[in-house]
Computed example of a mutant assay.
Amino acid sequence: MSSPTTSELLSLAENIKAWGKALGFQQVGICDVDLEQHESHLKSWLEKGYAGDMHYMSEHGMKRARPAELLPGTMRVISVRMDYLPPDAKFAKTLKKKQQAYISRYALGRDYHKLLRARLKKLGEKIKQECAELNFRPFVDSAPVLEHAIAQKAGIGWTGKHSLTINSQAGSWFFLGELFVDIPLPVDKPVTENCGSCTACLTICPTQAIVEPYVVDARRCISYLTIEQKGAIPIRYRALIGNRVYGCDDCQLICPWNRYANITDEADFHPRKKLMSQDLIDLFAWDEVTFLKNTEGSPIRRIGFERWQRNLAVGLGNANYSEEIVTVLHNALGQTTELVREHIYWALEQQHNKAAEISSDDSRLTQRLIRSIEKGLVRDA
């Protein structure tokens, strides 16, 4: 198809959406490459240091908001959505059990990056079959792309106050991917913001990382702290992390729009038994070989064994007092790295404090019983 007419481009756009859905995407939208209105927000976010140690965010400057600079010749961006909410997600059940490890639900199955990229590549190849010439490139968190701004402009959903994309009929439990193309496809209507006066996500955030609507200070975010943070987790956030050892879903869990979220049909996104609702102490017992085996094909593997143990040590410190936990932590001190050891010492201190509280409570109960006996309120057998 050379120099396609308007009607041909309209037909192609409809076909692209049909092909995308056949490949497993729940939604496909198209937008142009003008993201200039987002540049000031991005610049301000970077200048305030909210990217933390994610230096790659600033290294690319404003290229993130300029798709045509990332791939010269790009005229349109095809944005896709793929749902990942697993069946029987056990959100509250796991969060309530302090001895169990909570892993962000997107990470319980296969690494979505490879899956989405492969599907996007297939979509690009399908489009190329219909065009005389086409250059395309798929992206899934693999380059400086403003995926949420693109999704909003392509009609996928609006950017919520927690900075994630929300769809009125599917909530926010989905992955995004982009396909850059150099053909002038017709574009979709952008979605307008629809969070209204709701501030549930700002209020629920354990570390108050959403410093204002639509602005997240990554340095405070549990997902950043447990995944992107390479060194020690700041002490002031450790107790707030609770049993979340990889990522955090709180801002999505509280979002009222997620009552409309759909369960995924992708078996690859279903939870692995070795990761779902496992005891912290059992995961901490893994050696590096076991970690690599059990996280093969999982996004968790990217943080490496050392940070995995670091996160678990924090979780064990936040768990209810247990002599077994104390013993396990003590035994690990001589067999781990300096980074993990620092967090083990912190965890032991937390466990010691909890043991002291238990003893104090027992003492207070004993004194209360003695006073009751003295007053004749209970029988002194």
Rank of each mutant, 00 (worst) to 15 (best):
T6G: 13
S7K: 14
G20K: 05
K21H: 06
Q26S: 12
C31K: 02
C31F: 01
L35R: 04
E36G: 09
K48W: 12
A51I: 09
A65E: 09
A68P: 08
L71D: 05
I78C: 01
R81I: 06
D83E: 10
P87V: 11
D88T: 11
K96V: 07
A107N: 10
R117N: 14
R119H: 13
Q129F: 11
K153M: 00
K153H: 04
K153W: 01
A170D: 10
S172G: 12
G177M: 05
I183C: 08
L185Q: 03
P190M: 01
V211A: 09
Y214T: 09
A218Y: 05
T226V: 06
I227Q: 07
E228T: 06
I235A: 12
T264C: 00
H270T: 15
R272L: 09
L275G: 04
M276W: 14
S277R: 13
A285Y: 04
N294I: 11
G304H: 10
R307S: 01
A319P: 07
I325G: 00
V326A: 04
T337A: 05
L339D: 00
L339T: 02
V340F: 02
L348H: 03
H352F: 10
D362L: 14
R364H: 12
Q367V: 09
I373L: 15
D380A: 13
A381E: 15
